[in-house]
């Protein structure tokens, strides 16, 4: 079972690859759209990559609830 830190760093790798976000900028309190400048379509790509990486299902209606990196970490931690 991955720790919150491990999930955050996994997400940081995905964010860099998919959306060109600097991994050092990724922290639990950061908003995907406002702080990390991830647009709505890149967010979908992040979600799809996170599903593969963490072996978790993130349904369409859940994506809009993932506002911050911390939201995503919590969801992955609870559902992986």
């Amino acid at each position: 079972m991955a720790t919150r830190e491990e999930i955050t760093s996994g997400l940081a790798e995905i964010l860099e690859e998919v959306a060109g976000v600097n991994q050092d900028d990724v922290a639990e309190g950061k908003s995907f759209t406002d702080d990390l400048d991830v647009d709505s379509l890149s967010m979908v790509e992040v979600v799809v990559a996170a599903e593969e990486k963490f072996g978790v299902k993130i349904p369409d209606n859940e994506v809009q609830n993932l506002k911050t990196v911390g939201d995503a970490v919590t969801y992955i931690e609870a559902n992986a």
Binding site: L41, V44, V47
Partner: peptide, 12 residues
Amino acid sequence: QEGQIVFRWATT
């Protein structure tokens, strides 16, 4: 359209 859902369907 629900752009995110269409995008996800189309790309995956």
